[in-house]
């Protein structure tokens, strides 16, 4: 990377109200993940700024950014990213290690969260012994363990069948109802049902719904990059 500069996002000017459920829609390569990673403090913008409840995370040093990631947000990945050698319970408790919480407390809290996502029976299972939907629920429990105000999910249903995907969406919606700010990247239009805001991205730019729908209806006209470049 770095040989050819790709502008994944440009001129995205956006305010997400606290307590909202924002769905980000867009074709592959439109910059949805990039936007979410930037908000999650997992990537840094080359220019511009990102403010989360008043703090500019784009100008934070590495340590402050780590603290931000630990305390303020929970990230949910399309590929779940569970540690394969750890049980469900250990996976959920894992982030609390870096928060300096004692082991006993960690496991107790993790157990509560597993119960909350309906997996109290699976605490001792390893990721390979669970279905995709169960794994994603473990990942959601993990994202919640440090009680962040912001939940970021990058295509959380992308690796799941439609029924399972729907239950995951419902789970995310519940988090929103409980008062959290939720941002979900998805291809699934059903997700917009739970949303308070929907954002459309095309080629790294924010567009209006009409413009977006026009582009999706005539795929030949849309400037879609070849499939191979998406990760």
């Amino acid at each position: 990377m770095g040989r050819n500069k790709i502008q994944a996002l440009a001129g995205v000017d956006l305010v997400i109200p606290p307590g909202s459920f924002t769905v980000i829609m867009g074709p592959s390569g439109s910059g949805k993940s990039t936007l979410l990673y930037l908000i999650g403090g997992l990537d840094r913008p080359t220019s511009g700024s990102i403010r989360i409840s008043g703090d500019d995370i784009s100008s934070m040093d590495e340590n402050a950014l780590a603290v931000y990631r630990r305390k303020k947000m929970g990230f949910i990945f399309q590929q779940f990213n569970l540690v394969s050698s750890m049980t469900a319970l250990e996976n959920v408790a894992f982030p609390m290690r870096f928060a300096g919480v004692p082991g006993k407390q960690r496991l107790q809290r993790a157990r509560e969260l597993l119960a909350k996502v309906g997996l109290d029976k699976h605490a001792r299972h390893r990721p390979t012994e669970m279905s995709g939907g169960q794994q994603q629920r473990v990942a959601i429990a993990r994202a919640l363990i440090n009680e962040p105000g912001l939940i970021l999910a990058d295509e959380p249903t992308g690796n799941l069948d439609t029924v399972t995907g729907y239950t995951i969406m419902q789970l995310l919606s519940e988090l929103h109802t409980a008062g959290r700010t939720v941002m979900v990247v998805t291809h699934d239009v059903r997700m917009t049902r739970f949303a308070t805001h929907v954002i459309y991205l095309l080629d790294g730019k924010l567009v209006e719904r009409e413009q977006f729908e026009a582009a999706s209806q005539i795929p030949e006209a849309a400037t879609q990059p070849s499939e191979g470049t998406t990760l």
């Binding site: 590495e62 780590a66 630990r70 305390k71 990213n81």
Partner: peptide
């Protein structure tokens, strides 16, 4: 990457 995403510092 995951460790960092859940709040591990570089240290």
């Amino acid at each position: 990457g995951l460790m960092k995403a859940v709040g591990a510092t570089n240290r």
